[in-house]
Design a protein around this nucleic acid. Sequence first.
DNA 1: TAGATTGTTAATCGATTAACAATC
DNA 2: TAGATTGTTAATCGATTAACAATC
Lengths: 197, 197
Amino acid sequence: MSRLPVYLRTLGSLGADQRTCSSEQLATLAGVHSAQVRKDLSFLGVNGTRGIGYDVAALIEHLRRALGLTKNYAVAIVGGGNLGNALGNYAGFATWGFDVVAVVDADPAKVGNVVAGIAVEPLDDLERIVAERDVAIGIIATPARAAQDVADRLIAAGVRSILNFAPAVIEVPAGVDVRRVDLSTELQILTYHLHRR
Amino acid sequence: MSRLPVYLRTLGSLGADQRTCSSEQLATLAGVHSAQVRKDLSFLGVNGTRGIGYDVAALIEHLRRALGLTKNYAVAIVGGGNLGNALGNYAGFATWGFDVVAVVDADPAKVGNVVAGIAVEPLDDLERIVAERDVAIGIIATPARAAQDVADRLIAAGVRSILNFAPAVIEVPAGVDVRRVDLSTELQILTYHLHRR
DNA sequence: TAGATTGTTAATCGATTAACAATC
DNA sequence: TAGATTGTTAATCGATTAACAATC
């Protein structure tokens, strides 16, 4: 569930000397309610100690397992433009076990460019790349008009998780997860609050 | 509210010849419930016509007004790295009236680089830039460790809306809006579903 | 033991949806 | 008029929070 990454990050920001952590402390730092924390952790099957709190190291380990962060995932970025470039260089991915194994682009002029130490490959090779490198996650960083086609190809090739940065809603069959990051929508939500002040 | 940008985008994708649109059609395209649409629009003060639906052009206009998209907003990007670069080049911003008026960076080596047709300026000039160019929205595209300091300076300079791409939670006083886009969290949510299959 | 904190149930709250009279 | 669709109320649902016995 989507609060787990927040807990994990919060725990990481704790002092190295802190062995236990109460639901209250975790809640305050994560910006949620302590009952929420206890419920989430309880659902996860993590047990704290009454009167003491949760063991930080054990909790981190549990969260990492629950989030599937104990193994690495191969990520392919489709789109070698500015955004794909930025994503390829994003250091945070490696920290959490996401390996960018390919950057592909439809534009022959971009093929061969080096993004984050990886040479951009042709979009035509997408299917082969997904299969050979066991790509688990596809990131779409293309213009909107290309997004659906790219998604279809990723899915046909076996990818079941997609992070979509293109400003387009893409249709996917059941069993495929898509998360969308829409920069314009984020800004529009900000302006909604901005102008009604 | 955060569904409004979705409605707006959906309406934009309608054929140019479609004059009216039912709550049912809008709901299907936007992936929500028709009662939801009617309630949202009713709350907005938009009136449809029973038996007919909503007037598309009027609805778009209402949504644009509600979202504060009838005027332009000056945006400053802090961080002239890959992400700042990608954001500066993001065409979608201009479409919705967001003008990137500055890209600043703390690194003297980056100052002078041209990002999206704009020369990167020193972070030290942030306060002056915000004041002179009437910056309404600040985008933080710095490393995590710099995020809070940058936010503090943006807020001190008068910025009330912040979009934070740095993987850090930033503390802001009441009256300041922050939206956070955390790429690692997005991927972690995907893996949560991935590995439990 | 006394204080602290969990784990969980029950209460609350808010958001979503069903339903339907109003009416174009 | 008949069919379609809104606007809104009431019902439902799910998520959040309060509360407290259990217990370290």
